[in-house]
């Protein structure tokens, strides 16, 4: 049975159509990365699958049930791009992770001992157990991302949906994610994630889907990094060739790239 089944999906905001005709199937145990340029609609795709953006045409099924009638949201763990509005009221790491248990527990039941254990387990999985009592605002960007992963893991979902989990995150946190996701996938979990670049998650990805111009432009094995992109210390700097002036090159050798 497909965990996620999208057929001929179209969606957009206001008058602008972002996705035109997207079909995608994710089976249990799959690890699927959605790739694409900024603005290609890759985040919109998962937000539509989750019901945060209404679909215009097409059909979405979650665990075999049409999305409109789907009620087992505890089977899905969502990791947004960053911590919610996060206002002035402090909240500890443990409190944020505990809100991941609500889908399973329901609104009116109070947390019990097993819930506390689930929070600790989830924080252990991302290596943040020692920060359980700290305000989330004192954490680094990468640690906040790991908190959000722990929140999603706490409810013990079958499917994890992540929106650019390693955008602007330090290397150590990226490694910690990769470890947590590898364990989740190893236990039979299904993962659907939007990525800007594969990075340390590369070995985990079973299938890549490239979204371009509102359609799926490529689907298959993840693209191998080529050329200098493949080097381990590659920093993904884009050349700005127009900065190079011939006259200067004569006496100041440069390889024609400029890093910002």
């Amino acid at each position: 049975m497909s965990v996620v089944e999208v057929s001929h999906l179209a969606t957009g905001y206001d008058g602008r159509e972002v996705l035109r005709d997207v079909s995608l199937s994710v089976a249990a145990g799959d690890v699927v990365a959605i790739l694409g340029a900024n603005g290609s609609g890759k985040s919109t795709l998962i937000r539509t699958i989750l019901g945060l953006v209404p679909a215009r045409r097409g059909e979405i099924r979650l665990f075999g049930t049409p999305q409109q009638r789907f009620r087992h949201w505890d089977r899905i763990g969502y990791v947004p791009q960053r911590l919610g509005a996060g206002s002035g009221v402090p909240a500890t790491v443990g409190e944020v992770v505990a809100s991941g248990l609500l889908a399973r527990r329901g609104v009116l039941r109070f947390p019990g001992r097993s819930d506390k254990a689930a929070v600790r387990d989830a924080l252990t999985a991302v290596g943040l157990l020692d920060r359980i009592g700290d305000p989330v605002s004192t954490l680094s960007g990468g640690q906040q991302q790991r908190t959000l992963i722990a929140r999603a893991l706490a409810g013990k979902p079958g499917l994890l949906v992540l929106d650019e989990p390693n955008a602007g995150v330090d290397a150590t946190s990226q490694e910690a994610f990769a470890a947590a996701l590898t364990r989740f996938a190893g236990d039979g979990g299904t993962i659907l994630l939007v990525l800007h670049e594969l990075g340390p998650l590369r070995p985990l990805i079973g299938r890549a889907v490239v979204v371009h111009d509102g359609r799926i432009a490529y689907e298959g094995t993840p693209p191998e990094p080529a050329g200098h992109h493949a080097e381990p210390d590659h920093e993904h700097l884009h050349p700005h060739a127009d900065e190079v002036k011939a006259g200067i090159c004569e006496w100041a050798p440069t390889d024609g790239t400029k890093a910002y």
């Binding site: 505890d74 947004p80 919610g84 809100s99 609500l102 609104v107 409810g155």
Partner: peptide, 21 residues
């Protein structure tokens, strides 16, 4: 009675929505 749910809602409304609240 609604403290955990209201906390989740006010902390991250989209997440609350995906949690089925």
């Amino acid at each position: 009675f609604f403290r955990p749910a209201l906390f989740a809602l006010c902390n991250d409304e989209e997440y609350a929505r995906v949690s089925g609240l």
